[in-house]
Structure formats: C-alpha cells, structure tokens
C-alpha cells in the first residue's frame, strides 16, 4: 500500500472529479423565475466546494509527499491505509445474496444464509455457524414480527 500522503493525493483528485461531475448536473437544474434561488443553487455550491476541498487535500498531500522525499520522514514508517479488499467483497456478496434471497424465500432463509455464510467465511466451525445462524434468525424474527409488529420479508410459506 502507498503511504497516506500519496493516498491523499488520490482522494483529493477524486473529490475534484466528484465536484466536476456534480457541478454541470446541478447547473442544468432549473432556478425560480427571476431569481438565483431554486433547486440548482445548493447543489451547485456543493459541487464548487467539493472541488475546493479536493484541491486543498491534493496540495496538502503533495506537500507531505515532497517532505517525505526530501528525507524528513522515513517512508517506511509512514502510516499506510489498509484496504481489506477481501473483507469488503465478502460483506458485499453476503448482503447482495440477502437482497436477492430474502424477498423470495423470506427473512428466515435469507437471514440464515447471510449469517451462516459470514460465520463460515470468518473461520468458524460448521456446527457453530449453523447453530448460531438458526437461533439468531429465529429470535430476531420473533422479536420484530411477533413482539414489535415490525414486518420483515416473507417467503411463500409465510415466514
């Protein structure tokens, strides 16, 4: 991973990019007749400020980078942002699976698949995973649906 200073340069550039994307879309929104007020005003301001914040972050990042290069900071000791890509993708898949399964097969099945899957991925035993997932989903359903009357997705069999 690259040091924070260089990651900041990337972050700043991304913010500028976001601002550059928001600004034209915002300016295309209408305003009230004969007035600067209207739907377009605030998003346009926000777009401009995105660019401003991005520029400041980029410059700060570049400055820190140069300082590091000049040998003031030991590059190896710089904090490096850690992106745990695998854990991100695991959560992404788990929740996506829930979004697909739950409306069709109900909360109990969807929740069970989600929790059991996540528990397995995170290195628990089969038995623990299945038991915890089963008990948890049933308790959660009982509390929400039966006790608090908060509806959750139902499958073809009513749960």
């Amino acid at each position: 991973m690259i040091p924070v200073s260089r990651a900041d340069v990337v972050l700043g550039l991304l913010a500028i990019l976001a601002g550059a994307a928001i600004l034209p879309m915002s300016l295309a929104l209408p305003s009230l007749p004969q007035s600067y007020a209207g739907p377009s005003l605030f998003p346009s301001l926000i777009g401009c400020l995105f660019i401003l914040a991005g520029v400041v972050i980029t410059i700060n990042g570049l400055r820190a980078w140069r300082a590091e290069k000049a040998g003031q900071g030991d590059e190896a000791s710089q904090p490096r942002p850690q992106f745990a890509w695998r854990r991100m993708i695991e959560v992404l898949i788990a929740v996506a699976v829930f979004i697909i399964v739950a409306p069709r097969l109900g909360f109990v099945v969807g929740g069970f698949v989600l929790v059991a899957g996540m528990l397995l991925i995170r290195g628990n035993r089969w038995t623990t995973s299945v038991a915890v997932a089963l008990i948890l989903t049933i308790i959660v359903r009982w509390i929400f649906v039966s006790l608090l009357k908060v509806p959750l997705p139902v499958g073809p069999w009513g749960w």
Partner: peptide, 18 residues
C-alpha cells in the same frame, strides 16, 4: 466452498421462486 454453496442457494431461489 462455503461461499459457492451460498451463491448456489441464491441462484436457485431466483429460478425456483419467481
């Protein structure tokens, strides 16, 4: 393998329970 099984269930539910 766990992941694969989970994905299979998701796919099956898409097909079997429209």
């Amino acid at each position: 393998r766990g992941l694969a099984i989970v994905s299979m269930i998701a796919l099956l539910s898409l097909v079997l329970f429209p």
